[in-house]
Structure formats: C-alpha cells, structure tokens
C-alpha cells in the first residue's frame, strides 16, 4: 500500500510540473516527398485534438515561414492555442548543451569564440547532430530548459542526413562508453529506440526511387534502432476510375498518364506491404494553398 501511494504521488508531481515528457515524432523520407507538409499536418492534427504540440524544423533556413507566414526561430511562435512552431539549429543547440554542463556564461562565450572550438563545431563528426537530438529528447531525459508540450513533431532531415542524425548518439554510445558524452549518447539512444517515446515516420510518394530509398531507410531503422517506423504513403491519387476502367481509353495521353500513376501506386503499395510495414495513405491534394493542404491532410490523419 505505501508503495502504491508513492507511485501516486510521483505521478502527481510529474503531472503538476508538466514533466511528463512529450511524445516525439520524427518525420523523414527522400528529398521532396512531403516531409515538411506531413510534419505540419501531423502537428496540426495533434493540436486540433487538444494536445499541446510543438512543431520543430531543423537547420539554418525556415520552410514553415512559408506555410504559417511568420518568422520562425528558436523561440516558439504561437500558431493557435495548442500549436507552436520553432526552428532549431545545430550550433545553438550545442551552445545550450554546453551551457547545461558549464554553468558560467563567460566560459561558454569563450568556448564559442575560440578558433579551435569553432573549427571543431563546424566540422567535427557528430557534435551538432548529438546536440540536436539531445534537445529533441531533452523532455523525457529531464535536462535543459523545459519543453512543456505533449507532442513534439520534428521535420527531420531527408534520408542520408537522418541516418547521420541517429547514428551520432548510437555510434557514440558504442565508441565512447565512458564519461558525460557516453552517458548523454546512451540516454539519447534509449529514448529514440523506445517506440512509446519516439515514433518514426518514413514518408514516400508512389515513385520508384522514393519508395526504394524509404524502404532501405526503414530497414536500417529496424536494424539499428530496433523499432519499426510507419510508412506515410503521400500524394496518393484517389482515382474514381480503376486501371481496368481506364484501359479502353489507353490511346489518349491523359488516360495513359493516369493509368501509369495507378500502376505505380499499386506497385509501391505492394512493395511496402511485402515488407509487413504499416502504411498511412495521404491523398494528393489539388490545391496550391499550403494552409489548405495542411488542413486537408490533418483531417485525413485524424481518421487513422
């Protein structure tokens, strides 16, 4: 009985200080397949369902400013009562990370002004990636500034760079087993390997190269992160005519074009399904207004 009470109090304290730790969603896929659009839509959906959500983009340039019409930087910008957007950049995260260990601001400044450290930060393997993932997982690891969100949706890099991102802590945890760097790397890997805390979405479109590249990535994630990503099959054409019904019109350019899209779609779907992976289909939205696209896709995500 005392044990039960303890657990209860512990849960209560965690809730009260909003230290529950957000669920992390990482969106990746080949370049141009719709990672950013899918990430925005997922964030939109979660926020609409009443979850406090932070949508995060990585890197030096903002894409979401085109969608939300606001400058996006490290300080979260409010989009609505439940949705905020922010942009995290490797060097700034590294600064924050170092600040966490070295409490003295002056030393931190010296560190980043130092020529040798500058060179190291720009080119040394894995440092920036480690800092970024460190920040992404900082909620559940209870380090750094609080991230009081229920859900963290990250528009993560495309396939090649995404591998580098997770391989930094996973590789470092193996390479440098001792010391703070090893400890950090291990705790980061633990979070991203745990499907209850981190969900990975590999976005593809029904074309050969994106699917092949996406499935290769999915395999690496299964092998190295020991969890199974979801496949988001984006830009799926919901055709009122089947390939069979199109056949009589095959002589016409447009019908041939449609027929080819449908063939490719079926091929892509089959290829994914033979791997036994879960597929979320998102429709091709015929609008160029970004906000409309995001809302339409969010509604579709709602349904699943």
């Amino acid at each position: 009985m005392p044990q039960f009470a303890n657990t209860y109090i512990w849960l209560f304290v965690r809730r009260a200080s909003s230290w529950e730790g957000s669920v992390i969603h990482l969106i990746t896929g080949k370049g141009g397949v719709g990672k950013s659009t899918v990430a925005a839509s997922l964030a939109w959906k979660l926020a609409a369902a009443g979850r406090k959500t932070l949508l995060v983009e990585l890197g030096e340039r903002s894409y979401f400013r085109h969608i939300f019409g606001a400058e996006i930087s490290v300080n979260p910008v409010f989009i609505n009562s439940h949705l905020s957007v922010s942009r995290w950049e490797g060097e700034a995260c590294l600064r924050e990370y170092i600040q966490h260990f070295v409490k003295v601001e002056k030393v931190v400044r010296l560190f980043f002004d130092n020529k040798v450290m500058k060179a190291l930060v720009h080119a040394a393997p894995a440092l920036k990636e480690l800092a970024l993932l460190g920040k992404i997982t900082s909620g559940p690891r209870r380090v750094g500034p609080p991230l009081p969100y229920d859900e963290l949706v990250v528009d993560a890099y495309s396939t090649g760079h995404f591998r580098a991102l997770w391989r930094a802590p996973v590789g470092m945890a193996e390479a440098i087993p001792f010391g703070p760097m090893g400890d950090q790397s291990r705790s980061i890997s633990q979070i991203i390997k745990d499907p209850a805390q981190t969900q990975i979405y590999v976005t593809v479109i029904p074309e050969e190269l994106p699917v092949t590249e996406g499935l290769e990535l999915a395999r690496d994630i299964q092998n190295e992160l020991e969890q199974t990503p979801k496949i988001v099959l984006n830009r799926w054409l919901e055709s009122p005519l089947t390939a069979e019904q199109l056949r009589p019109f095959a002589g016409h350019d447009f019908a041939a074009y449609l027929g080819q899209i449908l063939d490719r779609q079926e091929g892509a779907l089959a290829q994914i399904q033979t791997r036994g992976l879960t597929v979320l289909k998102l429709p091709w939205v015929f609008s160029d207004a970004m906000a409309e696209k995001v809302r339409t896709l969010a509604a579709r995500l709602e349904a699943v």
Binding site: Y97, L110, V116, I176, P180, G182
Partner: peptide, 22 residues
C-alpha cells in the same frame, strides 16, 4: 587562462575518453 577554461569546458562536457579519442 582563457584557453584553459575552454579546454576544461570541453572536457567537462565530453569526458576524458572522448578527448583521448580526439
């Protein structure tokens, strides 16, 4: 002194095994 602070910071962040590898 300044350099020493910086190297100290690096070591406290990464640890001596990492520095050794570096």
């Amino acid at each position: 002194h300044g350099t020493r602070l910086v190297t100290g910071a690096l070591e406290s962040v990464t640890g001596s095994t990492f520095i050794q590898e570096l």
